[in-house]
């Protein structure tokens, strides 16, 4: 399962595309990546599935486009 990551999340996770073992939903995804990259647990970011921002636990599968987007501050 592929995840596209943006901003400084790519630095934390080591790449702008991360591959993880398949997970059934976004809550499990958060848990899995939080264990793998503990720095993510204290960081704000948005999860989007198939180009829609997710605010509740959402089912995902291998065909889902998953994005992790942090805030940017520069101007």
């Amino acid at each position: 399962m592929e995840i596209q990551v943006f901003g400084h999340l790519a630095e934390i996770m080591g790449s702008d595309i991360i591959t993880i073992d398949p997970v059934p939903d976004t809550e499990t995804l958060k848990e899995v990546i939080g264990n793998q990259y503990p720095a993510l647990n204290n960081i704000e970011f948005v999860i989007a599935v198939n180009k829609n921002q997710v605010i509740e636990n959402t089912s995902i599968d291998n065909s889902s486009t998953i994005v992790l987007m942090p805030p940017f501050s520069g101007g």
Binding site: G7, H8, N42, I43, E44, V46, Q53, P70, P71, F72, S73, G74, G75
Partner: peptide
């Protein structure tokens, strides 16, 4: 705030001053 309900922790996100920016981007 629908995107990011609360401000990030201090120092979590670096600004241009700290992280740099290629001039053409802005």
């Amino acid at each position: 705030r629908d995107l990011f309900p609360q401000p990030p922790n201090d120092g979590e996100i670096l600004n241009c001053e700290e992280a740099g920016v290629l001039g053409v981007l802005p």
